[in-house]
């Protein structure tokens, strides 16, 4: 059951220990912008989790078969075209352009699909869906997956890529919902005038980041617990 433990560890690491927002600072813009009400914050979190999983699925597929060094498809084309068989074909220089294209188009497709088949859901997500294109959390997840597909010795499978993406999305949802809860209560507090708005939100985020630092080292305990459970 090695794989299962590995997957759970990747998930917990992305969601709590190295939380996307509070450790890597990706997705700070919606974290500050869309965290006034718990309901909308949670909706935004779900939308991001959804899009991040689709983008991870697409970018893993593209990276594995086309973009990584020594990927099967360009190697085959290279061999058919009669290139020197000793060269490793590496298209990773194109990856940023491909990823941003994948993200932009998957956001567009998700928006069209949700609008057609789930009108009620579309109404509640509505405004936030197009905004997700410029959410750095999604590009960050793609880049992390790409990092793990560079080393041919231990390539990540699709399940590991998805565990990272869903973990990151869940971590984002946790962080933004907690933040919205605190901000709802802060509306009735007497905040010093210059700090109102973004200033106090950033300070709260700093204290939350300190709290999340407490998760450092949790992975060892989880590993022990899982190995004794699955034995």
């Amino acid at each position: 059951m090695e794989t299962l433990t590995g997957l759970v560890l990747i998930f917990i690491s992305a969601a709590l220990i190295n939380n996307f927002v509070l450790h890597y600072f990706v997705g700070v813009c919606p974290f500050l912008g869309v965290s006034r009400k718990i309901g909308t914050a949670f909706g935004m979190g779900c939308a991001v989790t959804f899009v991040i999983s689709i983008a991870a699925l697409l970018s893993w597929t593209l990276t594995y078969f086309i973009l990584r060094p020594g990927a099967p498809l360009p190697s085959w084309v290279w061999a058919v075209a009669g290139g020197n068989p000793a060269t490793t074909v590496d298209l990773s220089v194109l990856s940023y352009i491909v990823y941003i294209f994948v993200i932009a188009s998957s956001v567009q497709f998700v928006e069209m699909y949700v609008r057609k088949f789930f009108p009620a859901l579309y109404k509640s997500f509505g405004v936030y869906l197009p905004l997700i294109t410029t959410n750095c959390a999604i590009l960050f997840a793609c880049l992390e997956i790409m990092k793990h597909l560079q080393d041919p010795m231990r390539l990540w499978g699709l399940h590991e890529a998805l565990a990272l993406a869903i973990g990151g999305g869940v971590g984002f949802t946790i962080a933004i919902s907690l933040m919205a809860g605190i901000r709802e209560d802060m509306d009735i507090c007497d905040v010093p005038k210059p700090l109102k708005g973004a200033g106090i939100a950033l300070i709260v985020a700093g204290i939350m980041a300190m709290a999340f630092m407490g998760f450092t080292g949790v992975q060892n305990g989880v590993e022990t617990a899982l190995s004794s459970l699955l034995r």
Partner: peptide
């Protein structure tokens, strides 16, 4: 130099800039 310091510093500096402006 850890993540929380980034949030705290930026929050306080934003507050200072806003204070001067006001």
């Amino acid at each position: 130099v850890l993540p929380p310091g980034a949030f705290l510093t930026l929050g306080l500096l934003l507050g200072m800039v806003e204070w001067v402006n006001q």
